[in-house]
């Protein structure tokens, strides 16, 4: 097998998908190294969300290869399987279980056996309890652990969702617009949190906020019309004439 595949955490090659004649992804290829934090930018309709749909098994590509963790072909697996393999996904619109408490949200996200009967007879162990409390600390929601998630502010929901991803203990996190609707202070705290997370796992962040991406200070991939337009450091990408033309504007 290609060493590029075996050495990567995520490997996309020549991936295309169309909806009713509209080509959402057009021969998209890129590679994420283990432990890497990658930012993805691009105009609306560039295929960012479709790319995430394909990685997480929500959409099947028309053609192309998608490999995870060196050898696992993701195009043959569904969402649950892929999540169990260790890919976590945060949606653009924060999606948490609104009628559960914050504690329950995290308990559900914990990386434990997820079958019907294992959940039916599940008892909260001290180990799990400690783990949840640790995550609560990380996402700063300890004080609100018994509140319903519906009552959280927008930013807090984003953080809870990130917390849920952490509870899932994924090898790769896909984070879609984590700072949309956040205050500046929250945004920079989120950047810190993501950098912290990236110490132990790979993270792919899709974001429009250039300031936030500059805060992250990592390799940037710019997508447009379903394929990679440019890749490199933020300064390199933001000076690329094609990127300026397509995305940033003059």
């Amino acid at each position: 097998m290609d060493s590029k595949i075996t050495n990567s955490i995520l490997y996309l090659d020549n991936v295309s998908v169309s909806f009713d004649g509209f080509r959402a992804l057009n021969a998209l290829s890129f590679v994420i190294e283990p432990g890497e934090l990658r930012a993805i930018i691009g105009p609306n309709g560039a295929g960012k969300t479709t790319m995430m749909d394909i990685i997480t098994g929500k959409t099947r590509p028309d053609q192309g290869e998608v490999y995870f963790d060196g050898a696992i072909d993701l195009t043959r697996k569904d969402e649950a399987e892929i999540a169990q393999l260790g890919i976590g996904r945060k949606f653009q619109k924060p999606t948490v279980f609104e009628s559960h408490t914050i504690w329950d949200n995290l308990e559900l996200a914990l990386n434990r056996k997820r079958g019907v009967f294992s959940t039916l007879f599940y008892r909260l162990t001290t180990e799990d309890k400690a783990r949840i409390e640790h995550i609560l600390e990380t996402v700063r929601l300890t004080a609100r652990k018994n509140d319903y998630a519906a009552n959280l502010s927008h930013g807090q929901k984003q953080w809870l969702e990130i917390g849920m991803l952490l509870a899932q203990e994924p090898k790769l996190l896909l984070v879609d617009e984590p700072v949309a609707g956040m205050t500046d202070a929250e945004t920079s705290e989120t950047a810190l949190l993501l950098k912290d997370i990236a110490k132990t796992r790979s993270v792919v962040v899709v974001e429009h906020d250039m300031g936030f991406i500059r805060d992250l200070g990592v390799k940037v991939t710019c997508l447009a019309e379903g394929s990679v337009l440019a890749e490199g450091s933020i300064d390199f990408v933001s000076n690329d004439p094609k990127v300026i033309e397509n995305y940033l504007g003059r």
Partner: peptide
Amino acid sequence: IVRSKYGKVLIGVRDAESRTRFLGYRVENM
């Protein structure tokens, strides 16, 4: 049933089915 963790997953399926799926639960089995 509904007060077990399984019951909480069910409510999760009710409120945000795709979130449950992306957390690794087999929604169809649930």
